[in-house]
């Protein structure tokens, strides 16, 4: 009898281990390359040429723009969370313009339905979810057939007004992960490319089911201390008006 129970419990343990190994959480690490658009460089250079500043200074700025370096970004995800950050810029590129694809990290939690932009100046910003519209356009990125999705995003400009930017995302339905770079997520497939007014972000490497220690997810824990997008805009406004007053004095 005892022998039987031992056998049975051994079998149960084996069965349990079997189930456990099956329920491994899906994870992955995606590298994106950010590149500034030539059209943006051209218009920025044209604008600089009209500015009344010293010639040598102008030359330096134009040089920095025309030799813009690409940036690399890493997206790590596990189960219902993702973390996206910019790889540090190489020392030799420090004087040049980057990809203009931003540098703040983003944390996404699908269960809490939150997309959070991590900033030091304004706190952790609770981003408004984007409404995607899938079009019938497709294109190939790598071996993946990607579908096109479009959305518009409200942006606060430095001059103190709102503008709307169109964003095009190319996502791969064959990689069923609803994450993506920056605050762009929620599509039925991994976003492999973002086409923005000033830059493009393209996936250059995708590693799925990797060792947990290779994942870099910095969780934002104090969810109740988030700053809403509206509040963050207000704060920018305050800072800007303070600055204007300072210039006047």
């Amino acid at each position: 009898m005892t022998k039987h129970t031992i056998n049975l419990s051994f079998f149960l343990v084996l069965l349990f281990i079997g189930f456990n190994s099956q329920s491994q959480d899906i994870n992955g690490r995606i590298t994106y390359k950010g590149i500034v658009k030539q059209t943006f460089v051209d218009s920025a250079v044209a604008a600089i040429k009209k500015e009344k500043i010293s010639m040598s200074y102008k030359k330096d700025i134009i040089y920095a723009m025309e030799n813009a370096h690409p940036d690399e970004f890493v997206l790590s995800f596990k189960k219902d969370e993702s973390y996206y950050y910019k790889e540090p810029t190489l020392e030799k590129n420090i004087d040049l313009m980057g990809s203009r694809a931003g540098s703040s990290p983003y944390y996404v939690n699908k269960t809490l339905d939150k997309t959070i932009q991590v900033t030091s100046a304004l706190g952790n910003i609770d981003k408004i979810p984007l409404e995607w519209e899938i079009t019938n356009k497709t294109k190939k990125i790598g071996k993946y057939t990607c579908r096109q999705a479009k959305t518009t995003e409200k942006i606060y400009s430095r001059d103190g007004y709102f503008l709307y930017n169109n964003i095009i995302a190319w996502f791969a339905p064959d990689i069923p992960i609803s994450f993506g770079p920056k605050n762009y997520n929620g599509l039925p497939g991994l976003i492999l490319q973002i086409d923005y007014k000033e830059f493009t972000l393209t996936a250059i490497q995708i590693n799925l089911n990797i060792r947990e220690k290779d994942l870099e997810i910095k969780r934002v824990d104090d969810i109740d201390k988030l700053v809403s997008e509206k509040e963050s805009h207000k704060r920018i406004e305050e800072v800007m008006s303070d600055r204007k007053k300072m210039y006047k004095n």
Partner: peptide, 30 residues
Amino acid sequence: GLQEVVLDMPMVVKKDTILYNVNQLTTGEE
């Protein structure tokens, strides 16, 4: 589903040669 998958984007590495499929990486703006 369970083993590690590495999906390199449009490039093929063969010993000492890296072949790029340029069409898939460019946007036509270059």
